[in-house]
């Protein structure tokens, strides 16, 4: 186990080191001292308790989207629709958070989270059933559903759910009683981070200690084999899609009730896609996912605040992120290769 942790850490560290080298060269070219910049990034990410909290806060939505992605990728289902489920789940939770009576108090938490999970589940059930029953390519269907999610939520916050107090594209704030508590005030790090960790742990448990998780892993490795030993591949596919939708929806709810306290344009700046990179980097392993989410959280939070202390453009952080993602995509390529091979074998 410990060696697997070590190898997973290397799996994350190696791309990081390479991306640091690449961005170091870029920095030299634009006449900056890379060591100064990197140490600035390090302090801005982890320099003190407050910065660590900011990093974890930025990592929080990624925990959910990465787990939601990993559930599917591990099972060989190429679901890229976590972004959409995160959006619709978040909007559902926020909507109930400001329309239900504030007097309901803490009861709002389970209600909002349940609604978000349900909407997320329905959202991804659709491409799941399309794939399982009609072999509609899930990459295409989930990608399209993302556009639909952006359009629907965009319409709602620009129209029916627009805050009457605002000229901008935001809903009203949810009731204060429905705010998830902050863990280290004044930092925005909120209880959603813990819920995210619970999701990661539950995912780890699901993989190893449930028959459904066992089957998911098997169909991810070899569908023909799974079929031959009596596993229903369609049912497993639909199952992991629903699970993915539940987690993504809960993630949207946590983001809405813990961080934003409302829904707005830009509610998710692509957490679903960054979550994909995290899942790929972490090789779908729970520990890898936590490390990957923290890495991307650090880049997001430090990448912004270093602009306060040096005239490093956001682009540099994007270069670091991008290089790390390239490695994640290498892994993506391996998965899609396996898909192709799997199809060829099935034929």
């Amino acid at each position: 186990m410990s060696s697997s942790i070590a190898s997973r850490s290397i799996g994350i560290l190696l791309p990081l080191v390479v991306s640091l080298i690449v961005s170091g060269v870029v920095l030299l070219v634009i006449g900056k001292n890379p060591l100064d910049v990197f140490s600035l990034i390090a302090t801005e990410s982890f320099g003190n308790a407050r910065r660590i909290a900011a990093t974890l806060s930025a990592a929080t939505p990624l925990l959910f989207t990465a787990v939601a992605t990993a559930v599917c990728f591990r099972s060989g289902v190429f679901n890229v629709g976590v972004e959409g489920a995160f959006l619709v789940g978040g909007l559902a939770a926020v909507f109930l958070g400001f329309t239900l009576p504030a007097a309901w108090g803490f009861a709002l938490f389970p209600i909002c989270f349940f609604a978000a999970a349900l909407i997320g589940a329905i959202w991804l059930y659709v491409p799941g059933i399309l794939l399982a029953k009609f072999e509609v390519d899930e990459v295409v269907s989930t990608l399209m559903l993302n556009f639909i999610a952006v359009a629907i939520t965009g319409y709602l916050v620009n129209g029916p759910l627009l805050s009457p107090l605002s000229g901008n594209n935001v809903t009203p704030l949810i009731h204060e009683v429905a705010y998830l508590p902050r863990l280290m005030p004044p930092s925005t790090l909120h209880a959603g981070f813990l819920i995210g960790l619970v999701c990661v742990a539950a995912y780890g448990f699901w993989c190893r200690y449930t028959p459904a998780g066992f089957e998911g892993g098997l169909i991810g490795l070899n569908q023909r084999f799974s079929r031959a030993v009596g596993i229903s591949v369609p049912r497993t596919i639909v199952g992991v899609m629903i699970l993915s939708g539940v987690i993504a929806g809960i993630g949207g709810a946590a983001h809405g009730m813990g961080q934003m306290h409302r829904f707005s344009d830009g509610f998710s700046p692509g957490y679903g896609f960054t979550g994909m990179a995290v899942a790929l980097l972490g090789r779908n392993h729970p520990i890898g996912i936590v490390l990957g989410a923290i890495l991307f959280g650090a880049l997001a939070s430090a990448g912004t605040t270093i602009q306060l202390f040096s005239n490093i453009p956001l682009d540099l952080v994007n270069i670091i992120q991008g290089t790390v993602m390239i490695f994640a995509v290498v892994e993506l390529g391996r998965i899609s290769l396996r898909r192709k091979k799997g199809t060829a074998n099935a034929g």
Binding site: A58, Q259, F267, A300
Partner: peptide, 9 residues
Amino acid sequence: IESADVAAQ
């Protein structure tokens, strides 16, 4: 200061 995630952060 620019951020890709300016709403949440």
